[in-house]
């Protein structure tokens, strides 16, 4: 019997529940909940911006001190092509650095889980490295690697790798011992155990690491650009602040924020698509 046949068989036995009054009522309640969920954050945001605008106008603050939100928006619009170009550079550094951190972090996590030797020798270094405030050592990267993109990407890697390693280790180690015993009795080989049990089991945890690191990556890139680059949003920010072009600095921050939010939702979407079976994702699957 193929999967299609099974599907057809099950469909035939199903009740046409899509038209049941109970389901319709639940959908209405959900729509109402959705409206409320959108309304409060939106209202709070608009109110906050309005107060900011009012304060700037009433106190007649000079723009170099604090520009009004409308001013920031206008500035963003004015410099949009340039801002997007700089964002592209920052995003490139963040993306490449994050991708390397992701692959390297998962591999390192797997090695730490698989080998006690690696665990004992590599893990302490990672912890020590994580304890060091990396923004402070960023200038050293110029000394070691030089000025430019390479330096920036490496900084992003060291800035984002730790959460991925830790969460990969946690995930791979969290497989149920009874489950491993059971699949062993089914004749599972080491590789099958890793591929079919341990890795899928670790995915929710790895995703927790990915979400932290993916949002840290642009931050890392900007810090890298503060010190080790002559382009990108970080560099622009330093220049704008130095020249007292505060509205432009705010515009750069605004673009960064929008980008960061987009990254967050992108990782969430990928997570939903990859691990729809996990407890944290179930509501969205059922549509309840």
């Amino acid at each position: 019997m193929t999967a299609q046949e099974i599907k057809a068989e099950i469909k035939a036995g199903e009740q046409p529940s899509a038209f049941s009054p109970a389901l319709a009522a639940r959908r209405r309640a959900q729509a109402r909940a959705d409206r409320v969920a959108v309304f409060y954050p939106l209202a709070s945001g608009v109110l906050g911006l309005a107060i900011w605008e009012a304060v700037v106008r009433i106190l007649k603050m000079p723009p170099y001190l604090l520009p009004a939100p409308t001013h920031v928006l206008a500035e963003t619009w004015l410099y949009l092509p340039m801002l997007l170009k700089q964002l592209g550079i920052t995003a490139f550094a963040a993306g490449v650095g994050f991708a390397i951190a992701l692959v390297g972090g998962v591999v390192a996590g797997a090695a730490i889980t698989a080998s006690r030797f690696v665990d004992r020798t590599l893990y302490p270094w990672l912890v020590i490295w994580h304890a060091i405030p990396k923004a402070v050592v960023a200038p050293l990267f110029i000394v070691w690697i030089g000025f430019g993109m390479t330096s920036e990407i490496i900084f992003v890697i060291v800035f984002t790798v730790f959460p991925i390693v830790v969460n990969t280790v946690t995930g791979l180690k969290s497989a149920d011992p009874d489950l491993l015993l059971l699949v062993r009795s089914m004749g599972a080989e080491r590789f099958q155990m890793l591929w079919k049990i341990r890795i899928p089991n670790a995915l929710p945890s790895i995703f927790a690491g990915i979400k932290i690191s993916a949002t840290l990556a642009p931050v890392g890139a900007v810090i890298g650009e503060f010190v080790a680059a002559n382009q990108g949003l970080g560099h622009l920010l330093i220049q704008a602040i130095g020249g007292l072009e505060t509205p432009l600095a705010f515009a750069a921050v605004f673009v960064m924020a929008v980008f960061g939010i987009a990254i967050w939702y992108l990782t969430e979407a990928i997570e939903r698509w990859t691990i729809p079976w996990h407890a944290s994702q179930r509501g969205s699957v059922l549509g309840l």
Partner: peptide, 16 residues
Amino acid sequence: LDWRSVIDNVLLPAEL
């Protein structure tokens, strides 16, 4: 296994 449908869970030993 949470990530497998019922049928795929039942098929696990054959797969292994």
